[in-house]
Design a protein around this nucleic acid. Structure first.
Lengths: 168, 168
DNA sequence: GCAATATACTAGGACATCCAAGGGTTTGGA
DNA sequence: TCCAAACCCTTGGATGTCCTAGTATATTGC
């Protein structure tokens, strides 16, 4: 966290794998570990930018999703599916966003089982501001070159489809 | 979670970004979101493999790190730095590993402030077994082609260095 | 030598994620 | 028609991560 290490710990791990006779999976291990660590760094950056807005990444994602829904409202289970998180995580996020008056729960008109989440006016405004901040502070300064971005989108897209995220 | 979506939600988000006039950061946004989601998928796979061993990824990482230390022991702060996690997370992991008799705390011989974490015999055995399982079940079936693995290691390595993880 | 600063670990709290279980609602087949 | 299966959401419990604060030990400077 604080001081940079003298050497890349993941490269060291890769060498350890090779040294122990696991050379055939050393490279994938390093790639996967690098993805884990990169996610950690990116999440920290995102949360730092969102903190002044009183948002976490999970809550921001929900706000952003709602702001793109044509009606500004979505059933909980749809949100869960689109965000690819457990339904209980959505319940948790909605609880907190509702306390902050950024979203509101309302019953589904025809299906008594489902609950609709609707963006409030404040919620829509905050989503806009937070998105602008993320665009300039994180996405606009990703550090990835254009070619690398395209490659990541393609490779990780294939991975996610193979993992069963979507059919396309 | 269960059923695949008909379309890639991240590609949809990218289109939404472009539609709202944020085309200049739409691609990095998609790449970053894909990294977040890929990490989630990989973590779930890893935890599934580790569950039978009574381990989580955090605890496994600590065990693996100790198993590669020449003496089989490391100070807490070293472990925290090498794993790139907060010191309190290491305390948490050590607490649970110690309860399971996989590691043991011992005082540092010369520095009364530091605590050494040492692998027990069972800990070393379990680390071996868990690593073998991860190698065959996760790293050996990553789904990334060799060229993609190399590219990921290079691109994410540059990113992590620029983020201040290491100097190299 | 002693005070001030730095370092190492731990305790408590806030969040997020998942799983298992429970209660209400809808649907579809006997 | 009616009841069982399927579905939707929530609650409670376990884990992990971070932050802030507190305690104990080392090191530095006067």
């Amino acid at each position: 966290m604080g001081t940079p290490l003298p050497r890349d710990p993941i490269a060291d791990a890769q060498r350890n794998w090779e040294r122990h006779g696991w050379g055939d999976v050393a490279a994938p291990m390093a790639a996967i570990t690098a993805i884990m660590r990169t996610q950690q760094i990116l999440l920290a950056r995102i949360e730092t930018v969102l903190k002044p807005f009183g948002l976490t990444f999970a809550r921001y994602e929900l706000l952003a999703l709602l702001s793109f829904a044509r009606s500004g409202a979505l059933p909980m289970n749809k949100a869960s599916a689109l965000l690819q998180v457990h339904p209980t995580s959505v319940t948790n996020a909605v609880d907190r966003l509702e306390k902050a008056a950024l979203v509101a729960r309302s019953p589904h008109p025809t299906d008594g089982r489902t609950t609709l989440i609707e963006l409030t006016a404040e919620g829509r405004t905050l989503a806009k501001k937070a998105t602008a901040a993320l665009n300039t502070e994180v996405f606009g300064k990703s550090g990835f070159g254009p070619d690398d971005v395209d490659h990541l989108i393609r490779v990780l897209g294939t991975f996610r489809r193979d993992a069963g995220d979507f059919e396309d």
